[in-house]
Simulated assay, not measured.
Amino acid sequence: MADDVEVLLQMYREQHDQARQLETQRATLSNLIIVIASAALGFTAQHGLETIMLVVTLPMVGLGVYGVLACLKYHERSVLHHRAARLFSCRIEERLPSLLISDDWAELHARQRLRFPKIFKVRLYALWIALHAGIAASGATLSAVVFAHGL
């Protein structure tokens, strides 16, 4: 039985490591997009909203949309790895029921929900998506202003 638990524990760790790696990749990509969008906004502010600035503002739309799609994909993969880890955790608890893993997790979850009732419902991935959508909207708005004044 100890060997079974050791295998399950290793599989559990692997799933959490994969989820952690995805979060690191998401953070790196988001930081890169934020830096590029900030530079584009700064460049646009310096040079004004002339027709030539569409080469800066239109790619911002694509960059923001790409960020949204990437965050959605990272979230999907993260959910997969967290569910797999939970599955392995349940298998460990089946072999070692005295650990009470599910009971402890449920209690911790309930306490967290009570302590932070409003923010608990907000999904972190939704905040990242909103950030990237804001970048896309900024590019679209600036492009629309350029079109309205220049073309």
Rank of each mutant, 00 (worst) to 15 (best):
M1I: 08
A136H: 04
V7K: 15
Q18V: 08
L22G: 02
V122R: 03
L80S: 03
L124C: 00
Y125E: 11
I129Q: 03
T44F: 04
V145S: 01
R13F: 09
L32G: 14
A137E: 06
T24W: 11
V5I: 15
L127Y: 03
A136P: 09
L114C: 08
A136G: 11
M1Y: 11
L127D: 04
A39T: 11
A40K: 00
H81L: 00
T141G: 10
I119A: 11
M11G: 03
L9F: 13
V65N: 03
G150A: 13
S30H: 08
L22F: 09
Y12S: 06
D104Q: 13
F116Q: 11
R115K: 15
T57R: 01
V65K: 01
G42I: 10
R83I: 00
R115S: 14
S98V: 13
V146E: 01
E6G: 00
P97H: 11
A27S: 14
V5F: 04
A2D: 15
F147K: 07
N31T: 14
I135T: 02
G139I: 07
F116A: 10
L131N: 05
H82I: 09
L72H: 10
R20G: 05
P59S: 03
E6Y: 07
S30I: 01
Y12E: 09
I129S: 06
F147H: 06
S102Q: 14
A110H: 13
M11D: 12
